[in-house]
Computed example of a mutant assay.
Amino acid sequence: MLKKESFIELSARQRAKALLDKGTYRELLGPFDDIESPWLEKQGIVPQADDGMVVAKGTIKGVPTVVVAIEGSFQGGSMGEVSGAKMSAALDLAALDCTEGRYIQAVLCLETGGVRLQEANLGLAAIADIHASIMNLRRYAPVIGIVAGTVGCFGGMSIAAGLCSYLIVTREARLGLNGPQVIEQEAGIREYDSKNKPFIWQMTGGEVRAECGFADKFVPDDAETVRKAVIECSEKGVPKEFRTEKYEYFLEKLEKFDTSKQVDENSAKELFVRGGSHD
Results as ranks from 00 to 15, higher is better:
M1H: 13
K3H: 12
K4V: 15
E5A: 13
I8L: 13
S11I: 14
A12C: 14
R15Q: 15
R15A: 14
K17I: 15
K22E: 15
G23M: 09
T24E: 05
Y25E: 11
R26T: 15
E27R: 12
L28K: 11
E36F: 14
E36V: 08
W39C: 07
W39Y: 15
K42S: 15
Q43R: 11
I45T: 14
Q48N: 14
Q48C: 10
D50A: 12
D51H: 05
V54E: 01
V55W: 00
A56D: 00
G58S: 10
G58R: 03
T59I: 05
V63E: 09
V63M: 06
V63P: 00
P64T: 07
T65L: 02
V66L: 03
V68D: 00
S73L: 08
F74D: 00
G77N: 00
G77T: 03
G80Y: 01
G80P: 01
E81T: 09
G84E: 00
G84T: 04
S88E: 02
A89I: 12
A90S: 12
A90N: 02
L91Y: 03
L91E: 03
L93Q: 06
A95H: 02
L96Y: 06
T99E: 13
E100S: 10
E100C: 09
E100H: 14
R102K: 12
R102V: 15
R102Q: 11
Y103Q: 04
Y103L: 05
Q105S: 11
Q105D: 02
L108I: 12
L110S: 01
L110D: 00
E111D: 10
E119I: 05
A120Y: 03
L122Y: 08
L122S: 07
I127N: 00
H131L: 07
M135V: 14
N136I: 08
A148E: 06
G149V: 07
C153E: 01
G156C: 07
I159R: 01
A160R: 00
G162C: 08
L163R: 01
C164S: 14
V169N: 02
T170I: 09
E172N: 15
E172S: 15
L175I: 13
G176F: 00
P180H: 03
P180Y: 01
Q181C: 11
I183C: 06
I183D: 00
Q185C: 06
E186M: 10
A187S: 12
G188W: 04
E191Y: 14
S194T: 11
N196H: 13
I200A: 12
Q202F: 06
M203Y: 03
E207A: 10
E207T: 08
E211G: 07
C212R: 02
F214M: 07
A215H: 04
D216L: 06
D216W: 02
F218I: 09
P220H: 06
D221N: 14
I231K: 01
S234Q: 10
K236Q: 15
G237L: 07
P239Y: 06
E241Y: 03
R243E: 05
T244A: 07
T244Q: 03
E245V: 11
K246D: 05
F250S: 10
F250H: 03
E252Q: 11
K253C: 13
F257T: 11
F257K: 05
D258S: 13
S260M: 12
S260R: 12
V263K: 02
E265P: 07
K269L: 14
L271V: 13
G276K: 01
